[in-house]
Amino acid sequence: MKLSAGDFLCLEGDFASSLYIVISGTLSGTGSAHTAANPRLFEPGDIIDVFSLLEHAPREYTLKAEEDCEIQVVEHEQLKAILDEKPSWLRSIIEFLIRRNHIGEENARKSNLVQALPSLLYLLSGILKEQGGNTAPMATVSARAARMNGTRPEECHKLFKVLQELGVLKIQENSLQVQSPELVHLLYETLRYRALEQKISPNILSMTDQMVLTVFIRLSQRSKDPLRNGLSAISTADLKKESKKSMHGMTLTTRTIGALVEKGILTPSTSLDFHQPLDQAEFFFGDFDRIMDLLELNRIFPLLDKKLVE
């Protein structure tokens, strides 16, 4: 087949069952991954649309001759005729390679998403700080993710949707409204700690710690005392009483609350002797918002990996 410069060979998305081999000249291909400003060029020897030949897949590119071109077209019937006369293992190998390509493509898609999440959270957290609020322009986050990590717009959108499903943010018309900027930062830090320290982040709490904090928050919400500098104080007696009710009869002890004190999440009214009963401290106080964010982080974090590869 001969094409003159400027001729179109096919349109992206057209269903077809043939492939093209460039014999001479140059074709430019545009499509989802290659814009008109940055087309993929095909030169002599290149083959185009292997999967249209093998599986009748839609054309990958809109192809235009940049100069006079000669193209060889190979139809599916030709492939079938060759494979019919060849030993069956050759067909098996081709089928194996096709399967592997599909698996590889799916794995790459998932891997790219998993890999893109930390930088997206990092950038979102930074942009929220810059803007000084709970809202970040979606286009800005996507543009910076593309620059920093080559993240594609559709990958950003998928990640925004995952974060929305987890309750981290809400996608609005042109912006992202986050539940808590600190939660975005905590999520990033927790991922970073897991990856670089190869350990569970101190932000990830045991079930007991989470139950104690849930009790603390519940009592804080019920309390009529206003927060002082964001801090909430709950008496030890109330904590013990509510814990017994909420934690299936479990008694709150110095040891139970010790991990939260050591992590600086709860602070006792007096320095705690771990060998003495809990009543030694009259009350415990903690940063209400920080505890809420930590509880939210602990709800989200175990779901994150699964959500990303769904």
Binding site: L19, I21, I47, V50, L53, L54, Q72, V74, L79, I82, I93, I94, L97, I98, R100, N101
Partner: peptide
Amino acid sequence: WLLAVIREL
């Protein structure tokens, strides 16, 4: 062309 297809895959 079939060799090229296998190589491409």
